[in-house]
Design a binder for these strands. Structure first.
Lengths: 247, 247
DNA sequence: CGTAAATTTGATACGTTTCAACCCTCGTGG
DNA sequence: CCACGAGGGTTGAAACGTATCAAATTTACG
């Protein structure tokens, strides 16, 4: 590596400060500085549609959304899950049109702002730019992390890692992580993970037998997770078993 | 191309206009409005390092880079390839630190600008914001598209789709698409695609037998692609064969 | 309640990995 | 000049994991 570090000026730039602050701070800041349209959504509501002209950005105040992408050959894939504080609509900025559907998975509240309005407001409020860029940056790193896990891991680890990322997302938002209400069917989970619904079902059963998850008494859509870290350990164990492969 | 029309009347938002204009226009605009540090890089140079404090954004003026991510358990994955006009470093904005290595794959020229300097300049130049947002948005959609292909497809289609995306990237940059100099080893390609190097090798041989690609006389690192669209057709054919599965 | 959808579980088929052998090219040094 | 070794690449046979197909069972919902 002939390239040494870049010429770094001595004074510490503000650029390196983690942008955006806490989640609730960001939401409060947005509400105070932007004319947001707030509305309630219900499971199944499509709030962004593929092909639609890009005009709005959306911020989730509550609820959960899935992003559904359509491949060239007509199959559709769930490319991500979104929670409180996440933004929707970034995909439209570059081309002027959206490339995915965003679908509500339960009732929630959505804040929407026109992109041009946001840009105007941003010129007089640097915190707004910081929040926007932080959100886009997070989206990039999050997608990347998700891809790493979902593309590489064997089925066991893939499902476990999916649950781990989910609980982690809840944890970051201060919500309880010892139980999950899965609003997705096994087929949807499989679709998202690149597995069949049967494999997902089998892995969940295996995770239950390993006492890492427990199903709700009422429904196997509810998961109890006594110790979220057990999921991470399970993923590592799967890798240690199967992957001497490096590089 | 309406790159400079940002503050707009409410009815017809410029937000929907494809931002950034052409690639050469964007590069020219950047050079004129920003104090960029230009430098040459060579194969193997690490221009961004994981863990490094975020301070700079980089724009590729020429050459090709790979982004290398490290998983929690120490494996490393090539999470993307970058070409002329692409930006590097967005992953650092949110957290203040980079999460990937960016490594040059051949000689090229890199333009670097401090993020805080860019933000300052952006307040007086809307086109700069537009270009930045467009680049981030493109990164999001590109990663997503790449994930769709690389996670879902069977090995044959995965390699073919990888080549297709590569030639498409070259096409968008006005470079010749009938031949590829693969600066990656089979192992690196496999690493990126989630396949073993043997499988990559087999698929490439199969693609040659199917007369979709031809190897260079000198080296099997050079590919001739008579008709890039044949790659797309091959991907579709693979899917038609294996995937009655929908939903 | 009754029916359709969702889920679980098993047996088998298929594709990819693994392991192994061999080839080729290139640079080095005897 | 040729022998040699290392790294990259190709190809084959067997092992493994997941998909597929096919039930049986449970759950959701009008």
């Amino acid at each position: 590596m002939s390239t040494t570090t870049l010429p770094t000026p001595p004074q510490a730039p503000a650029a390196a400060a983690p942008a955006g602050g806490s989640l609730t701070e960001m939401l409060q800041m947005l509400r105070q500085t932007l004319p947001m349209q707030r509305r309630l959504v219900h499971a199944g509501d499509v709030v962004v549609q593929s092909g639609q002209r890009f005009e709005w950005l959306h911020v989730l105040n509550s609820g959960m959304f899935k992003l559904v992408a359509l491949t060239a050959d007509g199959r559709e894939r769930i490319s991500g899950l979104y929670f409180k504080g996440d933004w929707l609509g970034f995909d439209g900025i570059a081309s002027g049109h959206h490339t995915c559907d965003a679908v509500a998975m339960d009732t929630g509240e959505l804040w929407s702002v026109r992109y041009d309005v946001l840009l105007d407001a941003a010129t007089s409020c640097p915190a707004l730019v910081a929040a926007l860029h932080a959100a886009m940056s997070r989206e990039i790193t999050r997608d990347r992390e998700s891809m790493m896990a979902l593309c590489t891991l064997p089925a066991d680890a893939r499902v476990a890692e999916f649950l781990r990322q989910w609980t982690q997302a809840l944890e970051h938002r201060g919500q309880r992580t010892d139980q999950l209400r899965m609003s997705m069917t096994r087929a949807e989970i499989g679709n998202h993970l690149g597995l069949t619904l049967e494999t997902v079902s089998r892995v969940l059963s295996r995770l239950e037998r390993a006492a890492i998850i427990r199903f709700g008494e009422r429904s196997r859509r509810e998961l109890h997770i006594a110790e979220p870290r057990a999921l991470a350990r399970f993923v590592e164990a799967s890798l240690a078993r199967t992957a001497p492969a490096l590089q």
